[in-house]
Design a protein around this nucleic acid. Structure first.
Length: 639
RNA sequence: GCUAGUGUGGCUCAACGGUAGAGCAGCUGACUUGUAAUCAGCAGGUUGGGGGUUCGAUUCCCUUCACUAGCUCCA
């Protein structure tokens, strides 16, 4: 039974009760947060449970338990304080930066002479457990801003001082104290350290102070914690399981692609990976043809002048590769847009021609930082499933909505869950404020009219325009931007694109850049992890493995293979001199959707014996019926 | 690029201041096989590259390249 009421114990010992649904304002009015001990402990459903009041979106007081996201945050945030306390006990003089709760855990950024090693983490864990055992009360107190700064100066915490200095004048600054340890913190926290029973510190990594590479690099310790040891073990087990889906691992096992030392960030696609890639491209082409896109292809190397015109020289040079041809300076394209601009400019357009949807599977090269490379997810050369849509101003919203629907349609075919982000004008950008506002509002309106929720990323847009991003998750929950829709008033201006309006005058079209897969490479990475290599029949590089039981059935098997190939079924014959169990095992490990086994029985009856990767033995079948089943699974997924 | 870590045959891993070992894969042969591994034999590595310390380095040190996690950046 979940408690539906909140008890607040005040410092004077009296108890106030509030019922769920009360607003935070009402609580605040009734009690001063200074007086409240803040936390009301208890047990819910027999699990840890420290209740807390927090302000949720509806400004209602809600009751948290560990299973709630808010409850977990509370728990993790307190854990991060315990981590900081343990580190300061073991390594006096360590300066504290920030230590928030994150998905599945928490971290603390520390500035210390000492370089933390894996062994140190064990020691720190032990100390954290001690702090938990000490069952320290966690108390909140507030100081006026100036006193807070003085206090943190006295504590020799320069990062905290800097944080407080950024808070507005006259603000009350809250602190949390547990034992000898005091930390600047908005809270809320658990009432004491006791519930943090199972602690695991996971890794140390560098992190710049305030995320700025010009600042000092601090040491970040990542950890996780749970109210019960068993929950921690389950969590660690889940992480291990998830790692088995890693596309780099499966890509190697299934021989789909590789990345060699000779080409860091430049992936090689193997025969089976190419089959998958071609399926995706065919699928993509059909979907685009159906929606009024025309396909083009533009060169990879273009002269430097073009990149000055496009603005890439000023805004993207750091990420570009350059080369010389004869005496001229050339660049390898990092984006496809300038090429499309030139295709647009080859002729005159009428207002009647719009919208013009120009698609290109364009190979781009970008110099990504070496430390940022990651399998197929972040590479230095990749194929964007790009399209540039040229429009009349009044078509903007409908086109954006059309692309949003298109993305949703494609992702749903693969069964992907995604979230949307809207990124606004970055610092290093071009164009007028008015254009940016217009463009940003167009994207925002389209999202809102479609009733889609999104996360706002201030300052994260492209240098030529704001963007809507579609993010997909990998096996361990990291998200990767795949689809994006970017509205651009700059490029058409820079390239002086025009069309002839109904008035006979020249006008400027508007343009959007968009990708749906994002890049074929990244999309394949996501795809591998999503299916853990068990591709559905329509995507499987090999759909059927033909397994004759012995040499003498080879001819019969070969005949079946020929029949299947006639129907474009991707079939492989395994006529090696091996036992059937061995061949089945290998086909299963290759994650082939269907295995067809033939021996004496089948040859005589003119049938086949079918085994499914996912459903096991399916028994004897007619060849024709089986082939139809396979084809059905493919056609169902093709538009 | 930054911080930390890793780098042994095609793959997964072992060992160690005295010039490397296993399993799988490969090759050869036998077996002719009924739904997740048949048996035997053979071959395969100047321990990522370069330099140094040492009588001797794969092991210690420096440097470089690549990879991993995170930061930064981004499709």
């Amino acid at each position: 039974m979940i408690m539906e009421q909140i008890k607040v114990t005040l410092k004077d010992g009296s108890v106030k009760e509030f019922h769920k649904g009360v607003t935070i304002g009402e609580v605040a009015e009734a009690i001063s947060s200074r007086l409240a001990k803040e936390a009301i402990g208890g047990e819910v459903n027999g699990i840890v449970v420290d209740l807390k009041y927090v302000l949720n979106e509806d400004a209602e007081v809600s009751i948290l338990k560990f299973e709630d996201e808010g409850g977990k945050d509370l728990f993790r945030h307190t854990s991060s304080h315990i981590l900081a306390q343990a580190v300061q006990r073991l390594y006096p003089g360590t300066k504290l930066a920030i230590g928030p709760a994150i998905d599945n855990g928490y971290y603390y950024d520390l500035d210390s002479e000492h370089r933390f090693t894996q062994e140190d983490l064990m020691k720190i864990e032990k100390e954290m457990e001690k702090i938990v055992q000490e069952n320290l009360e966690i108390d909140r107190f507030e100081l006026p801003r100036e006193e807070a700064i003085a206090f943190m100066k006295k504590q020799e915490e320069p990062y905290k001082v800097e944080l407080i200095e950024d808070l507005p004048e006259g603000a009350k600054i809250s602190f949390y104290k547990q034992g000898e340890f005091v930390d600047l913190c908005a809270g809320p926290h658990l009432p004491n350290t006791k519930p943090v029973k199972a602690i695991k510190l996971l890794s140390v990594a560098g992190a710049y102070w305030r995320g700025d590479e010009k600042n000092k690099m601090l040491q970040r310790i990542y950890g996780t914690s749970f109210p019960k040891q068993k929950m921690l073990e389950e969590h660690l087990h889940r992480i291990e399981e998830a790692k088995k889906r890693d596309h780099r691992k499966i890509g190697k096992e299934l021989d789909l692609f590789s990345i060699q030392e000779e080409g860091p960030g430049f992936p090689f696609f193997h025969p089976k990976g190419m089959v998958l890639r071609n399926i995706l491209e065919d699928f993509w082409r059909k979907a685009h043809q159906k929606r009024g896109y025309e396909e083009i292809k533009t060169p990879i190397i273009l002269n430097e002048e073009l990149w000055h015109t496009s603005g890439h020289w000023d805004h993207y040079k750091e990420n570009m590769y350059f080369t010389k041809i004869d005496e001229g300076d050339f660049a390898v394209k990092p984006m496809n847009c300038p090429g499309s601009m030139l295709v647009y400019k080859r002729k005159m357009y009428s207002y009647r021609d719009f919208p013009i949807r120009m698609a290109e599977l364009g190979l781009v090269h970008r110099h990504e930082l070496s430390g940022a490379l990651h399998g197929l997810m972040r590479v230095r050369c990749f194929t964007q499933d790009d399209a540039h849509i040229f429009m009349l101003p009044h078509q903007i919203k409908d086109e954006i909505k059309g692309v949003i629907d298109f993305v949703d349609y494609i992702y749903s075919i693969f069964g992907f869950k995604y979230h949307i982000e809207l990124s606004t004008r970055p610092e290093n950008s071009m164009g007028s404020d008015e254009d940016w506002e217009l463009a940003t509002n167009a994207l925002k309106d389209a999202l809102e009219e479609k009733n889609l929720s999104y996360k706002l990323n201030e300052g994260d847009g492209a240098f030529y325009g704001p963007k809507i991003d579609f993010h997909l998750e990998d096996c361990i929950g990291r998200t990767w931007q795949c689809g994006t829709i970017q509205l651009d008033f700059q490029m058409p201006q820079r390239f002086d694109l025009t069309y002839i309006g109904s008035d006979g005058e020249k006008h400027r079209p508007v343009m959007i850049h968009r990708v749906i897969f994002g890049s074929i490479e990244r999309f394949i990475g996501i795809l591998i992890e999503h299916f853990a290599g068990k591709f559905p029949t329509w995507l499987a590089p090999v759909q059927v493995k033909l397994l004759p039981i012995a040499d003498k059935y080879r001819d019969y098997a070969q005949k079946l293979v020929t029949e299947m190939e006639k129907r474009d079924i991707r079939v492989e014959l395994d006529d090696r001199n091996e036992k059937i169990g061995f061949k089945i095992r290998e086909a299963q490990l290759e994650k082939v959707p269907y295995m067809v086994i033939v021996g004496e029985k089948e040859m005589e009856a003119g049938t086949i014996s079918v085994r499914s990767r996912d459903r096991g033995e399916l028994g004897a079948q007619e060849l024709l019926g089986f082939m139809e089943t396979v084809q059905q699974e493919v056609w169902n997924k093709t538009l």
